[in-house]
């Protein structure tokens, strides 16, 4: 692997580090708001991956100027505009669920919620069988 390869791929590697940090936040943290933040970081980093591949060296933003110019690839931009919207839609729904969960459970920590669910389950079973 040459220095050229390293320089040519470094951008992608950094983006991968960002993506994985986001994913790690989602899977390792039990706080529901933090999970949503993690999902945001994960998705935003994927946006960077797409936009990085659309970049052309020496290129410019894909808006026609009438002069002959090198333009960066507009297609990833379009895809990511869509993906950003999907991302914010998911975030809004996720947060709405967090608010409802807080109202219903009094907690937004996954572990505490799971414990409450397990208790509810075993109670339902024991009272059920006793009857």
């Amino acid at each position: 692997m040459s220095l050229d390869d390293v320089l040519g791929l470094f951008n992608y590697w950094m983006v991968i580090v960002l993506m994985m940090t986001g994913l790690y936040i989602v899977v390792s943290r039990g706080n529901l708001v933090k999970k949503i933040v993690g999902l945001n970081i994960f998705q935003t980093s994927v946006f960077l991956l797409y936009i990085s591949m659309g970049k052309v060296s020496g290129g410019t933003a894909p808006i026609l100027t009438g002069k002959p110019e090198v333009y960066s690839n507009p297609l990833p931009h379009v895809l990511i505009l869509t993906a950003i919207v999907v991302g914010v839609a998911t975030t809004a729904l996720g947060l709405a669920l967090v608010v409802r969960i807080k109202n219903a459970y009094g907690s937004i920590e996954e572990d505490e919620i799971q414990t409450m669910d397990l208790v509810a389950e075993s109670e339902a079973e024991t009272t059920g069988h006793r009857r």
Partner: peptide, 27 residues
């Protein structure tokens, strides 16, 4: 049952991870 809420949240997180993996693959 309030457990619908936590179930939906888990589904949202896992589903979004799945969708994001899919998007990475497509990319």
């Amino acid at each position: 049952d309030r457990r619908a809420l936590s179930a939906a949240f888990t589904y949202l997180v896992m589903g979004t991870i799945g969708a994001t993996f899919f998007v990475i693959g497509i990319g």
